[in-house]
């Protein structure tokens, strides 16, 4: 599904190098967790996967289903099946949530050469997905994310993910700002989407999220490189010992 090879990247404007040779492979159907202390490059990695132009790849490659996506813009990547659940979903005043959802779904369908969704079909899908995530109809009547609480924003991200049916889901600190009830709803939403054809890259600070979204592999990102990979037990070890021990071993 995803092969990241010796990825080096820097902030376009100031030139600070953030990723310094990331190597990572995520197989079809795999849930890979990326953990790491603040400033290790976790969010940068997620933005680069989605194609944000504030970052510049200077070396290495990102292969998605065997092909490089570096030359694709964010919309093209999304249409090919890459989805980023934002740590801080943006409020966009004036853009109605339903208009946005329909525009995004149909833009992706169009890019893939599929017929556009008719309104009744679209409404039916949104209602069903919203009910699963306990998102009420009033929320969907508002402009995109405007006035949503932190938890509502995160649920709205998962709603988008469910509707867009991506193949590679990158989740950037989806647990941040969520209370335990909201966390369970979000995790249930994610777990419902797990399948042999869909892979997840779950980025998080804390082991807590991984109790609910159980990963197949865990990778530790530190100073722009993966310094250790393992099973879900690695996350427990980090929880108990902190990052110090592993960073020490890698040094």
């Amino acid at each position: 599904m995803l092969e990241i090879k010796n990825l080096h990247a820097r902030v376009t404007e100031e030139g600070t190098e953030i990723l310094k040779g990331v190597d990572l492979t995520v197989k079809d159907g795999e849930v890979a967790a990326i953990m790491g202390p603040n400033g290790s490059g976790k969010s940068t990695l997620s933005y680069i996967l989605a194609g944000r132009d504030d970052y510049e790849v200077t070396e290495g490659d990102i292969l998605y289903n065997g092909e490089s996506i570096l030359e694709m813009d964010p919309a093209e990547r999304a249409a090919s099946g890459v989805f980023l659940a934002f740590q801080y979903p943006l409020e966009i005043p004036g853009v109605a949530t339903m208009t946005f959802l329909k525009t995004a779904m149909n833009a992706q369908r169009k890019a893939r050469g599929e017929a556009e969704l008719m309104t009744p079909d679209f409404m039916r899908r949104v209602k069903a997905a919203a009910a699963e995530l306990k998102i009420d109809a009033q929320m969907l009547k508002r402009p995109l994310n405007v006035g949503f609480s932190g938890g509502e924003k995160k649920r709205a991200e998962i709603l988008q993910m469910a509707l867009l049916e991506p193949k590679l889901c990158v989740m950037d600190e989806t647990d941040s700002g969520l209370d335990i009830d909201a966390l369970k709803i979000v995790a249930d939403g994610v777990n419902a989407l797990r399948s042999a054809e869909r892979s997840f890259l779950v980025i998080t600070h804390y082991q807590r999220l991984l109790d609910y979204i159980v990963p197949d592999t865990v990778h530790v990102l530190y100073k722009g490189r993966i310094i250790k990979s393992g099973t879900k037990d690695l996350a427990l070890q980090l929880e108990n010992e902190g990052y110090g021990q592993i960073i020490g071993e890698a040094a």
């Binding site: 989605a50 813009d73 919309a75 999304a78 995004a104």
Partner: peptide
């Protein structure tokens, strides 16, 4: 970027 990341 947010809108484009959804395929628009």
């Amino acid at each position: 970027f947010y809108l484009m990341s959804r395929g628009i």
